[in-house]
């Protein structure tokens, strides 16, 4: 049953991708198709990576509200970007070789994410309030630090930082896209291999251990994969805080299963579908150039509030 829904979701995603590529296609066809294909690839990669990362994160955190973004990952990215612009200047950042910058950013974000998630999840993961509060406070501290650094910037340099604060799918380097695809592909396959063990981990640490699962090892492996997935996608296009929450929540709601072999691809495809359909609607149908990320933050924020209020009503 869940598999059938997964196939249906895949078909809808293929349809949305075809519409994105071919809708109102005018000459020069090859050139426009190339541009659209690059953008589509970025949307698909980022949607899949963020959706899968969030399901992994929620399973090891034993909480359906948390996303890497909510516990401070995006604030970390903005702080790093601001520090980079402050250190090297707007022009210096623009002159950096894209490949080296991308790889350095990915490496730095993976390390930083490992520290952040390790701090939050490896110790006292059972204490949810402590975990959320620590994440939120770290986020506030990092944003405060970024804000302080932004005040020291020239207006032109500040504009560079501001561009990095929201995800942008417009101008993605094709070379970087190929590298990102390879990295994300490997991480996604590793996550799928981990799926049966994640099903057991979803029962909670104590119960999983009574069933013979090396729970701490699965948590470490999952957090490593989350770090790679969110670091690569964030370094590629920028932060999309709430996309993961939307993708994971819809994935769970549509599939109605505990099996990560279904949930991971479902959340990935939902994330991708949300981005592709959203961008299609914005660009092609409404003819707007507004940033899709802003809308995602808005809708995701509403969903987050709705989920919190639903939980409050239940208890």
């Amino acid at each position: 049953m869940a598999e059938r829904r997964l196939i249906l979701l895949a078909l809808v995603l293929v349809g949305a991708s075809a519409a994105f590529l071919l809708w109102n296609l005018r000459g020069p066809t090859g050139f426009i198709l190339g541009l659209r294909a690059t953008k589509l690839a970025a949307l698909l990669l980022v949607g899949c990576a963020v959706g899968m990362a969030t399901v992994l994160f929620q399973t090891v955190a034993q909480n359906r509200l948390l996303t890497p973004g909510i516990v401070g990952f995006d604030a970390l990215f903005v702080t790093l970007q601001t520090a980079l612009v402050l250190g090297l200047g707007g022009l210096g950042v623009a002159q950096l070789p894209p490949l080296a910058t991308f790889l350095a950013e990915v490496a730095l974000l993976v390390v930083a994410a490992q520290v952040l998630f390790g701090l939050l999840l490896r110790r006292g993961a059972g204490d949810l309030i402590r975990m959320i509060l620590t994440g939120v406070i770290l986020g506030v501290m990092l944003r405060g630090l970024a804000g302080l650094m932004q005040r020291l910037l020239d207006p032109s340099e500040f504009a560079v930082v501001q561009q990095a604060m929201f995800a942008s799918f417009g101008a993605v380097d094709r070379g970087l896209l190929a590298i990102a695809a390879a990295l994300l592909g490997v991480a996604a396959l590793a996550a799928l291999r981990l799926a049966p063990r994640l099903d057991v981990a979803g029962l909670g640490r104590v119960r999983a251990r009574t069933l013979g699962l090396d729970h701490d090892r699965v948590v470490n492996q999952s957090l490593m994969l989350v770090s790679v997935l969110v670091a690569v996608s964030t370094a590629l296009v920028g932060p999309v805080t709430f996309l993961g929450l939307i993708a994971a929540s819809l994935g769970h709601a549509m599939m109605q299963t505990y099996r990560h072999a279904v949930l991971l691809p479902a959340a990935g495809m939902t994330g991708a579908l949300f981005l592709v359909a959203g961008q299609f609607l914005f660009e092609r149908v409404l003819g707007m150039q507004s940033t899709l990320a802003v809308l995602i933050e808005f809708l995701g924020g509403l969903l987050f509030l709705a989920l919190i209020l639903k939980r409050k009503g239940r208890t």
Partner: peptide, 22 residues
């Protein structure tokens, strides 16, 4: 080893909470 122990001892704990949909 974790698996070896789980093949020798089954444990019913007091906790009944589940986040997975089962």
């Amino acid at each position: 080893a974790h698996r070896d122990r789980a093949r020798r001892i089954a444990v019913l704990t007091q906790a009944q909470a589940l986040t997975s949909r089962l």
